[in-house]
Design a protein around this nucleic acid. Structure first.
Length: 566
RNA sequence: UGUCCGAUGGUGUAAUGGUAGCACUGCAGAUUUUGGUUCUGCCGGUCAAGGUUCGAACCCUUGUCGGACAACCA
């Protein structure tokens, strides 16, 4: 874990409900006082901010209770899973700043053990092979309000099931012709207890076990037993598995005794406003090219946030702040933005960048002269030092920083108005030029030579301070401005519409004529800056040695923009 | 008309029978060579009704509302 000093001090208030459970268990010396968690992703997609909540929870719990946390790939469905995803998941967890215990674990490593246990269940009359068609089984399962009916194969002799199960494994049967079912209770009000399927036949290559298996265990059978094998004490998952818990416990009843037994605990998943969070929907955005890949900076994926310029600490702080509970929640995406700003404010060097440049000529400044202005790199960090920024007769300022007919509260440049060029001189607008379309092309100013930063005339009050870049020293860049991907707070919340109907057409604006101060020349991908007065930005991996490409992570808070919009 | 889970300011989350607090947001002000940061203040909440109790957000009852469950997905 990097930079623990910056980490928010843990728990100045009460415990969350999972911490309460763990402390209670510790007090009772349950499981010999061990605390062992696990993060169990299915490698069928990229990790997103919702997973980050779970990662921070599980690894964080292990850390605070001096326990362990495994990374376990829940790879029991070869139809959807790929090594590409395994790799990205490991990269993302490491990047977030967590280390898994020992090595990456895989549910697929337990296939043999799971098979043996399944055989044991059959022998004990707790499981049977069902030869009915899928539709038949589904029909017999009934509905939540009505009990199901038993399969005609339910009470076949264990020897018969044993033989069939072995032949299933040997590949004698086609996909979908047979399943192994647990014999629980077809009349249970809990659908998951109505003789759930433990194994299905799937003649499918697996990314780790290759073609060794043609039967694969279902989630309910694989997951709890994997926890059991790994010695997991607290199996933390999301709310939708609540109804699975009786089955989780039922399977464990067949194998475990009171000396050690993992416990499933469910918490409410993260929902973010203006965002979709399901892997299926994110996949859809990628496949249908609404975004440019899983790591598109507009994606709520960890890799997208990384490319956007988020830091691991900012995400961890976010996870701390949102808390953990069982009620459904929607977190304002603004809280995530607050968390990056908070961290970037501490660490990001300030630089000058003009995104929409307009030329200013300082008419009384000597032609050909260049002054090196000393600028502080980060007022929040005295150790960040300072740098020299060249100033000359022609500079760029932001088009937005000039108004021909400004309102009284506009503290920037306008005809006859004085503004300070940050770190340089106070200038006064004497004149401006426009083209035939009325578009501003050039501003003429005079400067006060005594007003140089630090000089005698510099202390006088001037309403506005602008950033600037010297024309002859400027480097060009492409800057990508991102906005939320969806224009609706809850893109999933409309029964009559698809979430993609709410994609924000302005979620990406590309600016190609941006001017940066020369110190940015050596910047490399993932370098982060505050473009003074604009926001936090980072260098994108699309940059080339001759062309910088820069992403806007998040704009600065801007009360003026908010006010002037009204 | 089943089972399970949940309900505290706009959004989250604490208080575990004893002053409803914190964060984000919003609003107002101070500081500021970033309309940033920082600082100060303000607005704003226990789903409802009964019950237990000296005392209830917390315990009990009933109701209301919301969510989850009917893949050979996880």
């Amino acid at each position: 874990m990097s930079d623990p000093e910056n980490e928010k001090s843990r728990k100045n208030s009460g415990l969350n409900f999972i911490e309460s459970i763990i402390e209670e268990d510790l007090f009772n010396n349950k499981n010999q006082g061990r605390v062992h968690l696990r993060f169990p992703p299915e490698p069928n997609g990229y990790l997103h901010i919702g997973h980050a909540k779970s990662i921070c929870l599980n690894f964080g719990l292990a850390k605070t209770y001096d326990g362990l946390c495994n990374l376990r790939f829940d790879d029991t469905n070869p139809e959807k899973e790929e090594v590409e995803y395994v790799d990205s998941i490991m990269e993302d967890i490491s990047w977030l700043g967590f280390e898994w215990h020992d090595k990456p674990y895989y549910a697929s490593d337990y296939f043999e053990q799971l098979y043996d246990w399944a055989v044991q269940l059959i022998k004990n009359g707790k499981a049977y092979v069902d030869e009915q068609a899928q539709e038949k089984i589904s029909e017999q399962r009934g509905v939540p309000t009505r009990p199901g009916t038993e399969s005609p194969f339910r009470n076949r002799p264990p020897e018969e099931s044993l033989g069939l199960f072995a032949r299933m494994r040997d590949g004698e049967f086609e996909n979908g012709t047979m399943v192994l079912r647990a014999k629980v209770d077809m009349a249970s009000p809990n659908m998951h207890m109505r003789d759930p399927i433990m194994y299905r036949i799937l003649h499918q290559h697996h990314h780790r076990t290759a073609d060794k298996w043609c039967i694969y265990p279902m989630y309910d059978w694989a997951h709890g037993q994997s926890d059991f094998i790994e010695g997991i004490t607290h199996s933390v998952c999301t709310l939708e598995f609540e109804l699975h818990r009786p089955l989780y416990d039922w399977f464990l009843d067949q194998l475990a005794d009171e000396r050690y037994r993992p416990q499933q605990i469910e918490f409410a998943r993260l929902n973010l406003s203006y965002t979709v969070m399901s892997k299926r929907k994110l996949l859809e955005l990628v496949r249908e090219a609404y975004v440019n890949g899983w790591d598109d900076p507009r994606m709520p994926t960890i890799s997208g946030l990384r490319r956007r310029g988020y830091t691991p600490l900012s995400i961890r702080n976010f996870a701390d702040r949102i808390g953990v509970a069982k009620r459904n929640n929607v977190i304002d995406v603004g809280l995530l933005e607050f968390s990056v700003r908070e961290h970037l404010n501490q660490i990001a060097p300030r630089v000058f960048a003009v995104l929409d440049p307009v030329k200013v000529i300082i008419t009384n400044f000597p032609e050909g002269e260049v002054e090196q202005m000393e600028l502080v790199n980060n007022p929040e960090d005295p150790d960040a030092g300072s740098r020299r920024v060249p100033f000359s007769r022609e500079i760029y300022i932001e088009r937005d920083d000039f108004m021909e007919d400004p309102p009284k509260k506009f503290f920037r440049m306008g005809p006859g108005r004085e503004v300070r060029l940050k770190g340089a001189y106070i200038v006064k607008c004497e004149d401006f030029e426009k083209d035939e379309n009325g578009r501003l092309t050039e501003i003429h100013c005079s400067y006060d030579p005594t007003s140089k930063s630090g000089g005698t005339g510099a202390s006088r009050k001037v309403k506005g301070t602008l950033h600037w870049v010297s024309v002859q020293h400027a480097i060009d860049a492409e800057v990508r401005l991102y906005d939320r991907l969806f224009s609706d707070e809850d893109p999933n919340g409309h029964n009559d519409k698809d979430f993609k109907d709410f994609i924000n057409p302005e979620s990406l604006k590309t600016l190609t004529n941006c001017k940066l101060e020369p110190s940015l020349k050596s910047a490399v991908p993932e370098d982060k800056f505050q473009f003074q007065r604009l926001g936090y930005f980072c260098v994108d991996k699309d940059s080339t040695p001759t062309q910088l490409v820069i992403n806007r992570t998040v704009p600065l808070r801007d009360p003026w923009a908010k006010k002037s919009k009204r």
